[in-house]
Design a protein around this nucleic acid. Structure first.
Length: 579
RNA sequence: GCGCCCAUAGCUCAGUUGGAUAGAGCAUCGGAUUUCUAAUCCGACGGUCGCAGGUUCGAGUCCUGCUGGGCGUGCCA
């Protein structure tokens, strides 16, 4: 609620002549019960600083406050002061703010020379199909990228592909042992997935396969132009081609496709830096950095006893590279919560080296995707090897097909049902993933995922479609923007205060989403705004309204549609005007 | 064993540096459509916020212990 807060804050600071410390303690919040006012100040912290009782300070502030043409009143209620805005001012801030593309409703242009936010996300392992497990990192990272760009930050989105190391070496081993040339060229990803499962089965009985894989990895890392290298290149190319499908459907793009292999010739320099800092030790033949002093019991291994590099080695080289190339203020790693230790170790190594870079490393963890075990009824982690990995395309197709059925039933005359079904279906899956706090596990439930009633993507999209429908009937260009503000009497929108107040929370919400790396805050706001709109439209007709009222409501409808589209856009959800 | 995360309505979840009477959706039940898209709206039902202490004027929120579930725990990523 950037605008409301700022205005009240300014007035309170002036009324009470607050010093810097007191201003820090000034906490403005929307009241739980909106009948109290539009924004409230709990006087507890402030009163403590001044050594007076909170109700007394509240009363004093309310008495000193002078109403103006923006803030209508300030009234004390016990230890709280409730501020109320003139309804016209509220409407003007929200509706004109949106339609005139003012901050924070429109993207802020990036400031010259501002530091970058690097976002390491998606990062699937090559030679494996893109499955549900990859969805979370992909949509959370993409949403955070858009949110930061909206705020005017420079963003470098990096797909840190798993195209190096043992997982890949295992795939290569499977290929050399069980691969079928014709099959590979006919359906590369399918064949690779079969090989992957076969390796898993065979390795149980024959652990020596892992030794073979390790040998293949050493051969690849030797840099020689050999069979391993040719295989690596082929599988990498095929995988990237295959991944492009899901990325296109999700509308996700990257600035860089620098996978682990990119750091092949940068790891040596990174190792030398660690050695030069004097923190590298040899333990059981491996080169490690001990982190006990930082409270991390497990040392960070940077080179195996057989000389091969590891995940940590590449992440360290990547951190150095990104620092030098992008000059970032933050490097966000959108990686599952189960890898928390990995990033603590990475930070730990940098800390022990005395690198300020350590504080820029931010692991943004998220919960697992769980499947229901039909026998026990309990939620369990997906066993990707057990063959119950669900391909993303499969889920998207199912959602789209379901939308297609609903369209046939509810809106059979729609011009482009397949296109709309794709938009709505894919969005439903993305929306569902970004709905809850990212740290929560996502329970993969077909029934719930395909139910489009209530707090879902289609619910919010439907609000946009209703709003667009009204503008269409009015013969108003939905994107007319500022022109729609002409001659509007904002006082006539007093009955839309719930919608307006929610709209005014947008700026603060986006800000918090960026700070906390929590896109679900934006998702939740779209649900609330859509709900407010749906409720408002029930009792407030636009087409049948008197001319003055119609003009004001038209502006409101256009602004609400535009803001919903902006907010949905941030989380990667498209909003068609008809559905 | 140790470390970390989670626990709020039957289910899935919100709850903003601790603040006013703990809120939604799903499910169930009841109602609203000659009126801008009923993928909607309105209402009802539903809570010892896992348990026990503690800090505080005030705790779902902070601290300690416990219980239950999950994840992780040197040569995988």
């Amino acid at each position: 609620m950037t605008d409301l807060r700022a205005q009240v804050r300014e007035r309170v600071v002036a009324a009470l002549e607050l010093d810097a410390a007191e201003q820090q303690a000034l906490l403005l919040q929307p009241p739980k019960n909106r009948e109290h006012g539009d924004i409230a100040l709990g006087c507890f912290a402030l009163a403590k600083l001044r050594g007076v009782a909170p109700p007394q300070l509240a009363a004093e502030l309310a008495a000193r406050f002078v109403a103006d043409d923006t803030i209508e009143s300030a009234s004390a209620a016990g230890p709280f002061v409730n501020f109320r805005f003139h309804r016209a001012a509220l409407a003007r801030m929200a509706v004109a703010g949106v339609l005139r593309s003012e901050s924070p409703f429109a993207p802020t242009p990036p400031a010259a020379g501002s530091p970058a936010i690097v976002i390491d996300f998606s990062s699937p392992n090559i030679a494996k199909p893109f499955h549900m497990g990859h969805l979370r990192s992909t949509v959370i990272g993409a949403a955070l990228g858009r949110i930061h760009r909206h705020l005017g930050n420079r963003v470098e989105g990096v797909n840190h592909l798993g195209d190096w190391g043992m997982p890949f070496a295992k795939m290569m081993t499977a290929w050399m042992r069980f691969g079928d040339e014709a099959e590979l060229h006919r359906s590369p990803m399918r064949h690779m997935f079969d090989l992957y499962r076969r390796y898993g089965d065979e390795a149980k009985a024959h652990p020596e396969l892992d030794d073979e894989a390790a040998a293949h990895f050493r051969a690849l890392e030797s840099g020689a132009d050999n069979e391993e290298r040719r295989m690596w290149q082929f599988l990498r190319d095929e995988s990237l081609k295959a991944f492009q499908g899901p990325y296109d459907r999700l509308g996700v793009t990257f600035d860089h496709f620098t996978g682990e292999s990119f750091y092949e010739d940068r790891m040596e320099a990174a190792m030398q830096r660690v050695a030069a800092a004097g923190v590298l030790e040899v333990d059981d033949g491996a080169e490690v950095v001990k982190l006990d002093a930082l409270g991390i019991k497990v040392p960070c291994i940077l080179r195996k006893s057989d000389g091969a590099t590891l995940y940590h080695t590449r992440d360290l080289a990547a951190a150095f590279y990104r620092e030098a190339t992008f000059r970032p203020s933050r490097i966000l790693y959108i990686v599952g919560a189960e890898q928390k230790l990995h990033f603590e170790q990475l930070r730990g190594v940098l800390k022990r080296m005395g690198e300020p870079l350590a504080d820029k490393i931010e692991h943004v963890p998220f919960g697992l995707i769980l499947a229901r075990n039909e026998e026990t009824g309990k939620w369990e982690k997906f066993a990707s090897r057990g063959g119950n990995a669900i391909f993303l395309d499969e889920v998207l197709d199912e959602a789209v097909a379901n939308v297609r059925r609903i369209i046939a039933e509810k809106n059979p005359d729609l011009d482009d049902p397949d296109e709309v079904a794709e938009q709505v279906g894919v969005s439903a899956i993305v929306f569902n993933d970004l709905k809850n706090s990212r740290i929560k596990d996502v329970k993969f439930d077909w029934e719930q995922m395909l139910n489009f009633d209530g707090e879902t993507g289609p619910y919010v999209q439907y609000a946009v479609a209703r709003l667009a429908g009204i503008l269409r009937k009015l013969d108003v260009d939905p994107d007319a923007g500022a022109a729609l503000c002409d001659g509007v009497d904002y006082a006539l929108l007093a009955d839309a205060e719930q919608v307006l107040l929610t709209m005014l929370e947008f700026g603060d919400t986006v800000q918090r989403a960026a700070e906390q790396s929590e896109p679900s805050l934006v998702t939740a706001l779209t649900i609330r705004l859509a709900g407010d709109i749906h409720a408002y439209l029930r009792d407030h007709h636009v087409l049948r309204a008197e001319p003055d009222v119609q003009r004001a409501r038209t502006a409101l409808v256009a602004a609400a549609r535009q803001l919903l589209r902006t907010a949905l856009g941030l989380i990667g959800v498209a909003a068609p005007d008809r559905m």
